[in-house]
Design a protein around this nucleic acid. Structure first.
Lengths: 205, 205, 205, 205
DNA sequence: TATGAATGAGACTTCATTCAT
DNA sequence: GATGAATGAAGTCTCATTCAT
């Protein structure tokens, strides 16, 4: 019952934040949309930012659980394994973003409307994501599957790719098949852009 | 004189937005920091968001000018050329971000605190960036230098990489040499992560 | 059972009103401190102010009963009698204040936090006290024991003295022996401050 | 100009606090009564309680200045002097209360509606008053004009008398001549209530 | 009788913007 | 052009009270 109200509030908030922006959405709008009284809001959330943070936390918890958490790099053995796994992860990410498109919008576009205190909390999610990716890369490097580029830098580049891949999959080309998106992302990530024939005549030496 | 005041206001605003966030920064703070009266603000800017937008516009104008605008892909001939140019662009980007670190922070972290109307304006910058990158890629594809991956998707992935490369260069590792960062970004972008030896046994085949 | 809850609520309220002030104390705090549910409060008291009023009423009922009610002036015959009785009353007052120190604080310091309606009720207690004192004085005046000063004015001055004597006995010097306090109050009340020798040279003539 | 607004706000607030009580008076009422905008209030006072405190401070500053500050006990020489001076002080007090009747009501009846923090500030005024009276008494005791009763206790009793004398002069008998009120208060304070003839037969020995 | 989740009116305060000087 | 005092709309949060269980 109680949980039901919290859920309704979160759903309404996610919708409104996405539509009108975090700042422009008033608590009054949220409760009106959720069909409860103004005061009820404060029985379930400390205040407006804390509801936002709860939404963001949920998004990241789900994303982490469905991706990195399920794919420890240690088990990898060949480049083929890696390739398949990376593609699977890209697929999961894209599907996750599309399934939770409102939350995705929220994380990608609204997360910065908060005050520094809460923003720090959110940035920590990104840092944790980067950390997890860096660890994954280091493991794969030790297995000789991945080049010896600085793992933390690459991890952050991957974070950026993921953000924009989700952006693309949700906003730019919402109808592009997930499979092909995941395939392209994988190829770009693992093999780069350079046409092999061109590389032969003049790659990174 | 007039221009001087506008500049002081912009500088103060950039500093304060970066430090305390856009929402938490009051016009009163900006004018106090710029050493002018409250009313003076409105002689130089229409309102608070429009000052923000002016800052963002400046950032993008400068970035575009120093990067893509100077590097029409048409002139490329070999993979080596491409590789050198890409590296130069990465270098420029990283140096630009570090030189204008406050504005960089602003664009990366504050741009979403605005109302939808202004945010649309800002998103247009990103879209234009993605468009320019896509055109560049298509040109390079026609020259046979770049793989035939979907240009718009890749362009957005590159946008994400650029955002996070700047983030990394400014916040995470502000002392890492720009040259090596640019080199790593280039290698990742053009050749991917897969260790060639591993690729042989099991790449994308 | 029911009475027990009402008592627990009153005790908790008295403590909290005293500590944090009437306004700052929420019904939620009171019930939490009393260990009952929010709704239960309203089974025992009409609302928050009425609980306060009940506490005040109790205080005054007890005080009146132990002091004036027991000492009809009519029985007095000599100044010595009067003196002894006045001292006894002072003693009772001081002891009463110290025994019910929380309620005393409440009456002296919180009684004004209420809305005009309830405040009128409380002021009536003070007026009744002043009335009783005035009657006592008039009786004593008729017996020739007390000077012919206007009884109502003096009664109010005595009310002020009593308030502050309690204040002194409870807050300022909680360890001063009641006996000596009562003695000093009595001497001041009956004989005034003027040193007799000084009075001779220049009193009220 | 600015001061004018502050004065208007204070006057309106004093009136409304007195009439409806501090708690029941909204900032909206005050500004409406003063004829300024809601926001203007906060240009002149930090918040509602701080306006209240300013009013109280004014009252006490004026009262202290017109009474104790003008009457250093050291100059006294005879009981007659003392008597005349005490009467003058009583007169001043009564007139002050009647002149500033609204503020008097405020101090006597509303001062407790505040939160503990501000109340502490107000109690300090009473304590300072008591201190000043105690010093005065001690000086007079050293001159042999006043009995050796404990000065601090008596000071507080006098505080109580003053509070209620003002109360009486303003609320109970607003038309009683100040001169006679001051005379009665003086006689009570200096000589007490006991009829001298009765005292002879049985005073405090 | 007891519960405690839900209510919703209402107050304070902030702050972008204006405009008379 | 510059000033800064004044504006007032608007939003967050509190908390006494109710009522279905």
């Amino acid at each position: 019952m109680t949980d039901d109200i919290a859920r309704k509030l979160k759903a309404a908030a996610a919708r409104l934040f996405t539509q009108h922006g975090y700042t422009a959405t008033r608590v009054a709008d949220i409760v009106a949309n959720a069909g409860v009284a103004q005061g009820t809001f404060y029985l379930h959330f400390e205040n407006k930012p804390s509801l936002f943070v709860a939404l963001i936390d949920e998004f990241f918890a789900g994303l982490i659980e469905e991706t990195i958490a399920r794919h420890p790099a240690k088990r990898l053995q060949t480049g083929e394994h890696l390739s398949a796994e990376v593609e699977e992860i890209w697929m999961t990410i894209i599907r996750y973003g599309r399934k939770h498109d409102i939350l995705t919008r929220l994380v990608l576009r609204e997360a910065h409307a908060l005050r520094p205190e809460q923003r720090a909390h959110i940035n920590r999610h990104f840092e944790q994501g980067a950390d997890a990716l860096a660890r994954y890369l280091e493991d794969a490097q030790q297995l000789g599957l991945v080049k010896n580029l600085p793992a933390r830098l690459i991890a952050w580049l991957l974070v950026g790719m993921i953000e924009r891949a989700m952006h693309y999959a949700v906003f730019v080309a919402p109808n592009a098949p997930s499979v092909s998106l995941a395939g392209h992302c994988t190829e770009f990530e693992l093999l780069g852009l350079l046409e092999p024939s061109a590389a032969r005549t003049g790659g990174e030496s």
